[in-house]
Structure formats: structure tokens, C-alpha cells
């Protein structure tokens, strides 16, 4: 049963792409691109710190867009189909993650100055924010239909909170700061935690699931 489901994964990718609510992601991705493109087009001279600030704002846009990508109005009605929720999420992730990665690559390309900017660190920040958005969305989807309306404000709250915590625990540090490495260890930990929560939240929230599965198997 389960092996069959996994084999169905490649077949699910195209329908998953069709079922994904892209509007929100495209709107957010567009705003994110605009944030980095406007200074690039007008050739505004910006410092490394300002450029990193723009990338961070674009990353927040991307996370806001990702927050809505797991939403599925039909989720409740298809809880009993042979393809379980983790597999459906895996199919969605197979569509979402390449799209988000391509968008981020485009953002980095437009920003330019690749040699000057700490791109790795900023990418970890962006990945962590995106993962938090998906994790909060997935947790919310266990009990409701709309993950995005909780996950998007949660991302904004996280970003503002991250920029206001005391200096020795800072997450947003300026490039070149001696706390950069330590801050990015914390970002990586946040990313790992968000991925774990997403994986946990992907399991179908059904009571006494194990006994039911045994019966079906």
C-alpha cells in the first residue's frame, strides 16, 4: 500500500503544480523582485549593509508567498484517499522548492555585487524564514483550511521580533560583524527546527491512526 503511494509521487507532481494556489506566491515574489530591482534599475549607490537589507526584505516577501503554498481547500475531503498527506505535501514541496529556489537565484542575480555580499549567510536566513512559513502553515492546516492567514503574519512577527532581540542573541546582524557566524548558527538551528516541525505536521492528524492503518494494510 505504502510502496504504491511512493511510486505515485512522480505522477503527483504535475497535478500538485496545478492545484497549488500560485496567486499569493506570485504576488509576493513580484514585490520581492521589485524591492531589489528598483535600486538596481535606478543605479542607486548602496552600501553592502543596505544591499543585505534589501535582500532580507525580499526574503521576507518570499516567505510570505510560501506561507500560502500548502493551502488546499480540498484537504479535508481527501483525508481518506490512498495517497496520504505526507506524500501530497512531498509532491507540493517538489513543485514549491524549485520555484522558490529559482526566484531566490533571480533575486540574487538582480542585486548583483555577488563578490561583496555574504550570499551564503543571507540565503540561510531566507531559507529559515521560508521554512518557518511552511512549518506554521502546515501546523495550522492540521486544524483548519487556511494555513497562510496564520503563517504570513507569523513570519512578519518573527522578523520584527528577530530584529528587536537583545544584541547578544541577535539574529539580524550587519555584514562584517563579529557575531555574523554565531547569528547564522542560530538561523541554521531555526531552519532545522522548522523542517522538523513541517515533517511532524505533515502527518495526517487522525486519532488512533496506527490502528486504522493496521486494519487497512
Amino acid at each position: 500500500m505504502r510502496r504504491m503511494s511512493v511510486r505515485a509521487l512522480p505522477l503527483l507532481v504535475l497535478p500538485a503544480a496545478r492545484a497549488t494556489p500560485w496567486t499569493a506566491f506570485l504576488a509576493a515574489a513580484g514585490v520581492g523582485l521589485a524591492i531589489v530591482a528598483v535600486p538596481a534599475v535606478f543605479r542607486v549607490e548602496l552600501t553592502v549593509e543596505d544591499l543585505v537589507g534589501l535582500l532580507r526584505a525580499a526574503a521576507v516577501c518570499g516567505a510570505l508567498g510560501l506561507a500560502f503554498l500548502l493551502d488546499d481547500p480540498a484537504a479535508r475531503t481527501i483525508a481518506t484517499v490512498p495517497t496520504p498527506r505526507p506524500l501530497r505535501y512531498a509532491a507540493r514541496a517538489g513543485v514549491i522548492l524549485p520555484a522558490a529556489a529559482a526566484w531566490w537565484a533571480l533575486v540574487l542575480t538582480i542585486t548583483g555585487h555577488g563578490a561583496l555580499l555574504p550570499l551564503g549567510g543571507v540565503t540561510v536566513e531566507a531559507a529559515a524564514l521560508g521554512a518557518v512559513a511552511l512549518a506554521v502553515g502546515a501546523v495550522r492546516l492540521r486544524s483548519g483550511d487556511n494555513g497562510g492567514i496564520v503563517a504570513a503574519p507569523a513570519v512578519l512577527v518573527l522578523v520584527v521580533a528577530a530584529s528587536r532581540i537583545p544584541p547578544h542573541l541577535a539574529l539580524y546582524v550587519p555584514p562584517g560583524d563579529e557575531r555574523w557566524a554565531a547569528a547564522h548558527h542560530r538561523w541554521a538551528a531555526l531552519l532545522a527546527a522548522a523542517v522538523l516541525v513541517s515533517v511532524w505536521a505533515a502527518v495526517e492528524p487522525v486519532r488512533a491512526r496506527s490502528s486504522m492503518m493496521t486494519e487497512i494494510d
Binding site: T23, A27, V31, I35, P39, L46, L64, G148, L156
Partner: peptide, 24 residues
């Protein structure tokens, strides 16, 4: 669509911050 409000907030914050930079 509910995505528009957070995006407007973000765009407004970036615009206010960028307009406040003393180099511009």
C-alpha cells in the same frame, strides 16, 4: 486576497526606511 496586506506593509516599511537613508 489576504496576501496583499502583509505585502503592502513590507513595501511601506522598505520605502520609509529607504527614503530615510541619509545617502539618498
Amino acid at each position: 486576497t489576504v496576501i496583499v496586506a502583509p505585502l503592502l506593509l513590507l513595501a511601506a516599511a522598505v520605502a520609509v526606511y529607504a527614503a530615510g537613508l541619509s545617502s539618498l
